[in-house]
Simulated scan of single mutants.
Amino acid sequence: MNIPNFLTSLRIFLIPVLIVIYYLPWEGRYYASAAIFGIAAITDWLDGFLARALNQSTPFGAFFDPVADKVMVSVALVILVAAYDNPLMTLASAVIVGREIVISALREWMAEMGKRASVAVSFVGKFKTTMQMIAIFILLSNAPGTGWADFGLFVLIIAALLTLWSMYIYLKAAWPELSASKSNDS
């Protein structure tokens, strides 16, 4: 177990902690939940940085890091959809989670074809992730119906739009493979 893998594992451990803290009947739950999510978001960046800097990349980390990220974001969005009871929150969250499923499947399929590099992470994807993390942090740290919560929802909608844009970029890059006619060799 190296430091990057420990940080990835920490993110998975923080998921049930986030759920429990958010639902505690305690005034500080919003700030505590946001802090937990913030720690997870920082470890998302830090584990990749350390894996490269310390030359500690492992198959476990390569597999588990994106899983930990997607599960943490998905769980946080489910919590927020339940808490906010807002159609825009639900739509933005569905777009974000749906895109993650589509792109994960696309990357797996492209890897099977030996073309995973054509759907590597783009700048738009990284920017989308940053906006998404900021939005979730703001939403977790504020009670529904407050001005900051409304701002957080606005940022989440921007993240959902960036999500659609990044999905378009990935699908466009993969389109030659997706639209190829089946070979007569089978």
Results as ranks from 00 to 15, higher is better:
V124H: 07
F154M: 14
V97N: 06
L171E: 00
K182T: 08
L106G: 08
G145Q: 10
R116W: 05
A53R: 12
M167Q: 06
Y22A: 04
E108N: 12
S183E: 15
L18C: 00
S9T: 11
S93T: 05
G152R: 10
F6E: 12
R11K: 05
R52A: 02
I103P: 03
P25H: 10
Y31M: 04
S74Y: 00
A92I: 07
L14E: 06
L14Q: 04
V75S: 03
G98A: 06
G147T: 15
S104L: 10
V155I: 15
R52Q: 05
S33V: 02
V78W: 01
R99S: 05
K115D: 11
M1E: 06
A40G: 05
I96E: 05
E100F: 05
I96A: 03
P59F: 04
T90M: 14
V124M: 15
D150P: 04
F137N: 02
S181K: 12
W165E: 08
F13M: 11
L106E: 10
G28Y: 00
W175Q: 07
T146R: 06
Y22D: 08
I19W: 01
D47C: 12
S179C: 07
T43L: 05
P59T: 09
A173F: 04
A111F: 12
V121Q: 01
L164G: 13
K115R: 13
P25T: 06
S57I: 14
G145T: 13
V97W: 01
G28H: 00
S122A: 01
A174R: 13
